[in-house]
Design a protein around this nucleic acid. Structure first.
Lengths: 204, 204, 204, 204
DNA sequence: GTATAAACGAGACGGTACGTCAGGTCTTTCT
DNA sequence: AGAAAGACCTGACGTACCGTCTCGTTTATAC
């Protein structure tokens, strides 16, 4: 966490530090390039040197801004991703959750699907990456979804003893599983069936 | 696939070829060493050279027997794993599935949990590894589980239109999700709750 | 030459230029620091960045004042060195030359010996440094020595056809050789013997 | 010394070491390339990477065979140099020494002049290089020259109390000085005059 | 038996990428 | 306007592994 959090600390540093400030243009160029190369060569095939060259940037600049390749991809992904993959807000908690599942499906079927998978894989292989992934991707989304569940409980649409975490894992786990193992495709029928099964299963 | 399948082809080669035959002792030493080092340094930290040195074996021997590092780990894992993580055979399809979930839980909570996660991660990052993983780990287990589901359908314990794939994803997906994201722990209560929810959800 | 001469041009700039004048205190701090670091780490080990940091000065300031690392050392050396290593002025040209040899010996045996050697080495490896070394160290001293030789010729202490350059090389060459190859030590007996041999050799 | 001597130790290692033996062809290619590049770009301008590329060799091979850039040049120089720059063997010690001076002159005026100068400079800036330079270039030549001096003493051509080291420094020092400072050129007249002066000076 | 062919340990080899260092330039803010 | 701080591009550094290739040696069958 320390390493990956470093960048954030600096971001939090509101006071303008001495010396020449870090150039945001370069920052964007790097994130842009990393995604381009990611598309062309895949996670493993992208090297720090390739990113640097493609972005017209020195390698040192990369290491100044990010502690590792995975951290670059993380930033690039989150920057592009923020506020996408929304949940609904329809008044019905069940509908909201269903909308969330469908938007995740869309994400996973699009070009970012393999990227998310790659990030999760990196998170498994490198604990630091895993931690930052949980902190910046999993938990924020979970918090949002948990609010919906709470609303459902309050509105009597979900049982009072409903375990939000287990419910969300039951809904999303199957989708993530197909993304990662690639044994079956993630189509609408599958998502709807999963949703139907689980929601029926939790009803009192 | 080509690369990873190579080893199997040779295995199929029953006829004793001329010259000195490949030494099984070395084979075992390598698999042993790979697991030891995996425990010490994690997936990323283990190198072919380290395995070779630890096993007291030349690098060429590694490449003669296996086409890649992941293939070694795969063999090591499957050798240790074979016939573990059984499903039950109790007469009740639901009980059999539940037993399968619990034995998977035990596996994931033990020392092999991170190893499975690492293999899956490698499978995401390297398509060839992904393919072999599906071929030798996912599909065999699926086939077995599908048989149980079919038995359940035949016995009237499961609805006739039951989609085996979706059902298995619904049961196992949540457990795999927690293994890979590490956001919550995989305890018995969670497994039981997931089982209860899903089985209730699919009942007609 | 261009690069190394730059500093001199500016020095010649007598007219006080516009804006804040360059701070001499910094100049001294830099020269001081360069010698300190030279003693600690040797010629190779001293970097521009280290000098800047040690002197509490920006790197740009360094490059504004001097065109290269060697130029800094050259200035530092010459500043400390000025008017040392004198020739005598005894009325006897031979005695004057002998005094010059002995003062050079003292210089080479002291802490500046390795520094002079280092400067000469830099002068060999970098032609620009070599040129400035000749311009600011070798030739001024040669000119002085040549005057002594001329006085000796005029006074009949040296033969009329005496080749000043060859004579000086014969006297000083052996001392420089031992400084640079380090194969033998530079002691008084050696200097005296060299002086005796050469002066006997040139007598008509 | 340790580092630079390493290569030699291995050379002395007569017993054929285990594993694939080091390839002499590469060795020669590297030495060849280093001299070519030295001629083109000078001591400073040659990089390990350039040598490696020019020789069609991996960088690791360079570091396996030699501990430093200077060590490569040293080997290349000595290989090309061995048995050149001979002394004479005319019966007359003085003539032999004179011939030695003239062959040194020829060496210094040719393409190897700057190379020798560069090696000496490196020897000043890096003590390890200095040591190997003394061991493999200076002392062997000195030993040979000292034998000539001894022959001269025995034959009565040189005084009995003649200090060989001081004499050789007096003869060669001036030539080396001009090579390294570059303040005057090394022509035959200069060498002859130096020879004449010194030999006259030591005569009893 | 003895030849032969492959496996084997060791380690050299050409590569690619790594992460770091220093050089020299530029862009801020402070003085 | 000068200066310190430090970001920046560049290029080289020395190292780590990769996967391949010799070596000399060992160990099975095949002749």
């Amino acid at each position: 966490m320390t390493k990956l959090a470093a960048r954030r600390d600096e971001e939090a540093d509101e006071k303008p530090r001495r010396g020449r400030p870090r150039c945001l243009i370069r920052r964007h160029a790097v994130l842009e390039s990393s995604l381009v190369l990611l598309g062309e060569r895949g996670f493993r095939g992208v090297t720090m040197e390739a990113i640097a060259e493609h972005a017209g940037v020195g390698k040192v600049t990369l290491y100044r801004h990010w502690p590792s390749k995975a951290a670059i991809f993380m930033d690039a992904f989150l920057a592009k991703q923020q506020a996408e993959v929304p949940f609904g807000d329809t008044g019905s908690a069940l509908d909201d959750l269903r909308i969330g599942m469908l938007s995740l499906m869309k994400l996973f079927r699009g070009p970012m699907g393999p990227q998310v998978a790659g990030l999760i894989a990196e998170g498994i292989l490198d604990p630091e990456v895993g931690e930052i992934l949980r902190t910046r991707w999993v938990r924020p989304r979970r918090a949002e979804a948990a609010k919906i569940v709470q609303r459902g409980i309050d509105a009597g649409q979900l049982p009072k003893d409903c375990d939000a975490e287990a419910l969300l894992d039951a809904l999303y786990g199957p989708i993530y599983l197909r993304l990662m193992l690639g044994h079956e495709k993630i189509d609408r029928a599958f998502v709807e069936k999963t949703f139907a099964t689980v929601t029926k299963g939790i009803r009192p």
